[in-house]
Design a protein around this nucleic acid. Structure first.
Lengths: 350, 350
DNA sequence: TTGAAAGCGCTAACAT
DNA sequence: ATGTTAGCGCTTTCAA
């Protein structure tokens, strides 16, 4: 029967009441069975379970959400152009981690793209997820600062991945950008390099500033004076790395620390164009180590950040929503390749 | 005040009732304002709107969904490993289309990854989305057949993109695989090629079978007898294309139609390894034309499928949910490159 | 044009 | 161990 213009109602869904009827119990008992409440006679439980299975009954999520104020949904809001999103192995790894985290907590995971191909941002996204999800995960970045503020203002359960401009009063997961960076640069210094260039992101990317800090600290520790002419900042992608490295080469560095792997990719390109060999003419090291990231030849020496664990941890924090807001920092590990000048060893793993 | 173990309740959300109180009207009136009901005095409407803005009130989605049986959410269920998902420009284009379609209909768009890195499928996904979304979009493929059946059984609003094994009673969007394929192959024949090889997906991918059909039809129409030894099927990715093309080369084709662009990429590799030049030694044409797909040199002649429009159309169908279930087939267009032997023209567009 | 009241399907406190 | 009952916050008749 047509009830609205051109629409027909779907076959009426079953309700708890009706399941109860068929099983000869009240709706409360069915509810108890559904929610694994202990106080149900096994015999009754089986009877109810059977009816539920037979009928294919699914509880109404809206009603559940209304009364319990939780949906069991976790959202990842992605403030990135869709085209950038797909093809970014960082997100791939992060999403894998979040997926697993959600599974462990019996949560459902949904991704909300918040940027169109035209760059049209949904300023709606906070409102959007508001109400639909129990909590949201957002990655920090220049484009998500606004969103993060809004989330905080609204008091929404949220976990921020990375370091936003305003980090007050936020539950966050981050990686050891500074320490990891210092570790890699120290390694380059250990190879005897003194003119170590820095190719990294512009400072509105706070992880870039942190990695630069680490670079400085490591040089300091190695007794090398930091030469600001060796520091070149640009957009944290391959093209940015190419530009920064090209500019840097005029300073004749004997090693380059590219603070993201896409930038390392650009650095490789710049070096190749100048006929410089890695690591013989210029050693290179980087930061990221993301699965399915750029595969470079010679293999990059890099600080590996545990993106998968970051995702999983984000979910843990969302579930625990620690009070007061907590920051969890995950450690990085050094992965040696040939790019820094270490002997190429037959690598048994991938 | 702690109300549950370790959790504190969030600041109580405002309700319609309270907004009404502050505005000096009943909750019904506020509801009317919220839903753009005409029967509200402008003066009252303004007053209410003001209170809503001041308070930052957001209606409770669960309550709304409960009473209206709709959430305003559209879900894309992605039955693909996350790592495959990210990095697949097809999804990128499709998601862009869906996003725009949803925006046009004032719907919120969420993506549900249904496959883990370990290949663990969520057989839950139908139940998952059930209740959370008003409708789901699913891409057809060997891995989603099960899901699609379940969706149909449950009578969920769903739109299938592509051609699943069992296509009964489904609202679908698809592209002209057969016709588009025939168009490309006819073009190859127009260049005088007679030994046109087919490199395409194994038949469990129905779009592959359809493209093979088109290939046969075009040869037929050109008066060329189909030589089954020129037909090589494999996995529809670059490696599959490489294997199929390598096998095919033993038959000395003078042209190859690679039925997907990743397979064309593999075909290029195989040809290069054999020292064969495109198009001089072997002409190549393909099917897909997805933005940000493989960039090949020489540029591919290809049947372009309108993936963005597919996404947008899927949303339209979801909203219209035509009864009886309808199939919409979108046309492909021929994009000429140099790979088929056409003169290379300076391409003014990208 | 507005308010009062019913009820969507569920959970949980209370009663038995 | 199970049933009864009271809402959760909203939309939507129905009256006024």
């Amino acid at each position: 029967m047509i009830t609205e213009t051109g629409r027909r109602r779907r076959p009426k869904e079953l309700t708890l009441e009706q399941i109860g009827e068929r099983a000869g119990v009240s709706r409360s008992t069915v509810s108890r069975v559904l929610n694994d409440h202990p106080d149900v006679r096994p015999e009754v439980r089986d009877r109810v379970t059977a009816v539920i299975r037979e009928t294919g009954y699914r509880p109404n999520q809206a009603a559940r959400a209304l009364v319990s104020s939780r949906t069991g949904l976790v959202g990842l809001v992605m403030v990135t152009e869709v085209d950038e999103l797909f093809g970014d192995p960082y997100y791939s790894a992060l999403v894998n981690g979040i997926r697993v985290g959600c599974a462990e907590h019996d949560l459902i995971f949904a991704m909300f793209p918040a940027f169109g191909p035209d760059g049209s941002s949904d300023m709606l996204s906070p409102q959007i997820t508001q109400g639909f999800v129990d909590g949201v995960i957002v990655t920090a970045g220049p484009r998500s600062d606004q969103l993060i503020s809004t989330l905080r203002d609204r008091g929404q359960h949220a976990v921020v991945v990375g370091h936003p401009a305003d980090d007050r009063d936020l539950v966050r997961v981050d990686v050891e950008n500074r320490t990891g960076s210092a570790m890699v640069v120290a390694h380059l210094c250990g190879h005897g390099h003194r003119r170590v260039g820095f190719v990294g992101p512009t400072p509105e990317h706070r992880f870039g500033a942190e990695r630069l800090d680490g670079y400085r600290a490591a040089l300091d520790a190695a007794g090398v004076e930091v030469d600001e002419r060796l520091v070149h900042l640009d957009h944290p992608d391959a093209d940015g790395g190419y530009r920064a490295a090209t500019a840097l080469l005029a300073e004749r560095p004997d090693a380059i620390y590219a603070a993201t792997e896409p930038m390392a990719e650009g650095t490789y390109r710049a070096l190749a164009e100048h006929g410089l060999r890695i690591p013989r003419d210029v050693a290179v090291a980087s930061f990221d180590g993301i699965p399915r990231g750029p595969r470079l030849e010679p293999a990059l020496t890099t600080a590996v950040q545990p993106v998968f664990d970051v995702g999983r941890t984000a979910v843990d924090l969302l579930v625990g929503h620690p009070d007061p807001p907590t920051l969890v920092v995950l450690p990085t590990t050094l992965r040696l390749g040939a790019s820094c000048g270490c002997e190429t060893r037959p690598d048994p793993s991938t």
